[in-house]
Design a protein around this nucleic acid. Structure first.
Lengths: 236, 236
DNA sequence: TTAGTTTTGGTCACGATGACCATAACTAAA
DNA sequence: TTTAGTTATGGTCATCGTGACCAAAACTAA
């Protein structure tokens, strides 16, 4: 995907190549505490440059698909996942991102629900990592993940994006755990509850989560629509 | 720039071409009311497609420059302007943006100060338009400008971007006029003043604006730095 | 029956905000 | 020189959202 058989002079003349990558977030229980934590899938590079290192899923842009379609396809092909949320993150085009070739990467970020994430393909060259323990990645992918995390935290604090990391029905405590995992700080249950109950996009249901160890919490559902990206504006 | 001499089959095989465009905002006094208003420069297309229509300044990405450098150069070449603020807006990659060729445009948006804007080149093929009276533009550039306006309003309400549309020294009323022009609603002078005086990035000076018709207002200056784009993170 | 934990509802002080009033300070006209 | 007009500036007041905190309700497990 990033490789080329052209020689140096031909590369100088050729336009920068265009690639699509995606940062995919999902919640998984921590091995230690069991509390939900942010994870993301990476693929191992099987060619130079950075052969053997882990990298974001990505690939070239096919001629017949839009940017968002390319990101969605890429996500499906590498991990078998269908995202519940997909948004463009940034176009990275620094001159020395790849040592062998000038590459401009248009990066998307996605959220997948835990039921989906459980079905994700895992193989020798595809593995999930905790978002806060990635190690050194190929290219500038560490900086890209950092920026994606920054965006996720922003969207979480401001917008209504947490529900795309959960199933259709959820308890308020589950939403709170998402916030606590992403923002990395504890939130007061009563105050958090008050805020969510004042947002019209959160709908109370008549069902309760059974089987817990304590008082059964009420189940809620999210009735809002995603934001207003240029890609998604046609549907409004 | 968007043209190609390749035939249909060659275009199918070729990768999508990559272009940089910029949405450039500046304040100019309205012809009618004299109050500051948002304007932006457009260039007339001299080739098909959309020959004769107005379009955003743009061009191809040179091999030896970063995305931001390309946007900056493009801005300078078409309008002679140096921006005081420059940020990536979005990568537009719909399949049918151009009828003759698949083009992916990475769009930046910029703010220029009024002293700069007064020096801007104007010619037969470069003209300034009021942002709210553009008419039909080439390609999907109307949608791009709409999105840029949305971003500008967001950054204005949240971040500290208004000062890049003003000179080094400004009165609080001038800042308020920027907000009123961009957000298109009147703001209470006393309340607006209270807010600005509570932001540490606004510094009071010992000078006053002379020559007005009424009580001379105090001059302030902005001491903050722009945000934290991926492009600008290295400088932090 | 009791202890332990979570869910849920409530109070309170505080800061930010919008609506509104009043005075200060300057220009321009009378 | 006086006066009217306009902006700049300072202030009050009610309201709302928020964080800190308390307490009862509801369920499980011992």
């Amino acid at each position: 995907m990033y490789s080329s058989s052209a020689n140096v002079s031909e590369r100088q003349a050729a336009p920068p190549s265009l690639a699509i990558s995606t940062v995919i977030f999902a919640l998984r229980p921590s091995e230690t505490s069991g509390r939900p934590t942010l994870w993301l899938p990476l693929v191992r590079r099987i060619r130079e440059p950075f052969k053997g290192l882990w990298a974001l899923p990505g690939g070239p842009l096919t001629h017949s698909e839009s940017l968002q379609d390319a990101a969605s396809r890429n996500l499906r092909e590498t991990t078998g996942l269908a995202p519940s949320y997909l948004e463009q993150l940034y176009a990275f085009g620094g001159l020395h991102r790849s040592p062998t070739q000038r590459v401009v990467s248009i990066v998307y970020w996605a959220l997948v629900q835990p039921t989906e994430a459980a079905l994700a393909d895992v193989s020798e060259n595809v593995r999930w990592f905790r978002a806060d323990r990635l190690g050194d990645l190929a290219f500038d992918h560490n900086a890209i993940v950092d920026y994606a995390l920054w965006r996720l935290r922003n969207k979480l604090a401001y917008g209504s994006v947490a529900y795309h990391l959960l199933g259709e029905y959820f308890t308020l405590a589950q939403v709170r755990e998402v916030y606590e995992a992403v923002l990395d700080r504890e939130l007061d249950p009563a105050n958090f509850r008050r805020q969510l109950r004042s947002t019209p996009e959160i709908e109370e249901t008549d069902h309760f989560l059974q089987g817990g160890k304590h008082r059964p919490p009420r189940l809620y559902r999210f009735t809002g629509r995603p934001g207003l990206d240029p890609d998604n504006r046609s549907t409004l």
